[in-house]
Nucleic acid binder design. Sequence first.
DNA 1: TTCCAGGCTATGT
DNA 2: ACATAGCATGGA
Length: 276
Amino acid sequence: MIYKLEKDKIIVTDKSQFNPKHILECGQVFRFGTDEQGNYFVISKDFKATIIEKENCYEIVSNNPEYFVKYFDLDTDYNLIKEKLKRNKVLSPMVDYGYGIRILKADSHEMIFSFIISQNNNIKRIQKIIDKLCTIGKVSDNYNCFPTIAELSDASLEFYQSLGAGYRDKFLKATADALKDVDLEEIKKLSTDEIYDFLIKLTGVGPKVASCILLFGFGKKDKFPVDTWIEQVYYNHFSSEKRSRPEIQRYFENEFKENSGLAQQYLFYFERENGK
DNA sequence: TTCCAGGCTATGT
DNA sequence: ACATAGCATGGA
C-alpha cells in the first residue's frame, strides 16, 4: 500500500513511484498546470486535485479523494512493473529518468475528444483548445468540468469552429453527434478488440488515437500508441530498420506485453524531454 | 519562410 | 491491403 486515504486528501507515502511532474507532463492528459505555490493540479471529469509535496510524501488534496485513488492507479505497485521493464537494457535508463510515471485512469469520453484534438498537433495548443472546449462545461468551484456528452452534442458546429482546432472541428462535431445516444459504460463491457472497432469508426479516430483512448480512457495497459515521437525514439534507440507505424506498435507490444502502455510513456517522456 | 506538432480522411493503386 | 496528398493553426 503506497497511500493512506483521509476525508479530504490522499497521502502518497512512496515517492519512488509517484511524481506529479512525471505523471502529468508525459502527455497522457492535458488539463493540468501549476498554481502560485508551484503545486501541480489536475482537472479530470468533474473533479480537481492539487498535489502538495512534503518531505517524505505527497498530499493529494481534492473534492473527491476516492475518485483520485482510482485516477492515479494507487492500488497498483509500479515498482514491481518497473523491475520487469528494466530487463530491457534500452528502456532501463528511461525508467530511471521518468521513475514517477503512472498510467492514469481518465474518463473515457474526455479521452476521446482530447485525443481527436491531439492529432498532428502540439501539446501547448492541444491544452488551449481543450480549455476552450471546456467553457461549455458546468462550473464547479473556480474551474470548468469537462463537458458531458449531452453538452458536447448540443454544441453547434460554429462553436467547434471557434475553438481554433483547425480541420479537427468537424471531427469533433461528428463524434459528438455519434456519441449522443451511446452509453460508454456499456462499451466498457466489450473486449479490447471490440472497443477498438467501435472507436475507430468515430470520425477523427485512427489507430494511434484509438490506442491512446484505450490506454488512458479504458484502462487497456497493453496498448502502445505510436506517434512521431515514438517513431523517433524507435529509430534513435532501438533499430534503424525502416518499419511502418503499425509494425512498430506490434514490435513494442510484443516486447512489453501487459505493460506496453507504461513502457510507451517512459519512452515518450524521455524523448520529448531529451530529444530535440 | 519553411518545418513540425501525440495523424486522419479521402483517394488512388 | 498499402501508399500518399491535403489538411488548419501556431510556434520555432
